[in-house]
């Protein structure tokens, strides 16, 4: 591995995720193969203000609940490869469903930037988005962009830069669920911490386990058995 900072690009399918990826990385793209996986992901590099970044284009998914191989790949990357920043691309014209995914990403990782793409399309359709309110509620930077028409890109890059340098706060909103679910999460957390310590979000992991996600536990077991840091 090189010492580039890694940005994982997550989002629903059809959100213009790859347009943004292409715009930022140009032709400096390659297929990256990551640790112990036979899965190839597109990765590209770019430099901003003297810092080199490697951007990883995760498969477009509707959720991170591991309903499909793509979802597992995207989730595993964020959970186990721990990118320096996860950039969630949302479709401004279908924000509700897209926010769902953002909320799920924010449960897993701490450094999240949300960019709302296709902002020009949504404005044409009479949708106006107050990103300041969203930013306040979500606790992470929210940037409105149009990758196609290159709107808001400097702002996005600047935000990434300032986040990396610790100049802006990032406290992702953590979902709270109904009492029953919360109680179950509380019960499971100690068991999880026993195994993974502080390496992963014990809360999130507990939630996934209560939801019956067995593949996740297998993955962790394999990684621990190989003495990989997780």
């Amino acid at each position: 591995m090189n010492d580039n900072l890694r940005i994982a690009l997550a989002g629903n399918p059809n959100t213009g995720k790859s347009t943004l990826f292409n715009l930022l990385t140009g032709l400096k793209q390659h297929t990256g193969n990551w640790a112990g996986k036979t899965v190839d992901l597109m990765a590209g590099t770019f430099t901003f203000k003297g810092i080199s970044y490697e951007m990883i284009d995760l498969p477009g998914t509707y959720s991170l609940f591991s309903n499909s191989k793509d979802e597992e790949v995207a989730r595993d990357y964020i959970v186990f490869e721990k990118p320096d920043i996860t950039l969630v691309v949302l479709d401004a014209t279908a924000l509700e469903r897209n926010l769902n995914l953002a909320l799920q990403v924010m449960e897993i990782t701490e450094k999240v930037v949300i960019c709302i793409n296709l902002i020009d399309e949504s404005e044409k359709m009479g949708i106006s988005i107050n990103e300041k309110i969203l930013m306040k509620r979500l606790g992470v930077p929210v940037i409105k962009i149009s990758a196609r028409n290159k709107i808001g890109i400097p702002m996005l890059l600047d935000t990434i830069d300032r986040l990396i340098k610790g100049n802006i706060p990032c406290n992702p909103y953590k979902m709270t669920y109904d009492e029953e679910t919360e109680m179950k999460i509380e019960q499971l957390i100690p068991f999880v911490q026993n195994i993974t310590g502080e390496q992963l979000s014990a809360r999130w992991l507990s939630l996934r386990l209560i939801d019956g996600d067995k593949s996740l536990l297998k993955e962790i077991e394999q990684r621990l058995a190989k003495k990989d840091a997780i």
Binding site: Y62, S63, F65, N67, E96, R97, N100
Partner: peptide, 11 residues
């Protein structure tokens, strides 16, 4: 099962 989850994800 999975289909239910997928449908839920989609709204």
């Amino acid at each position: 099962g999975v289909m239910r989850r997928r449908l839920l994800d989609l709204g």
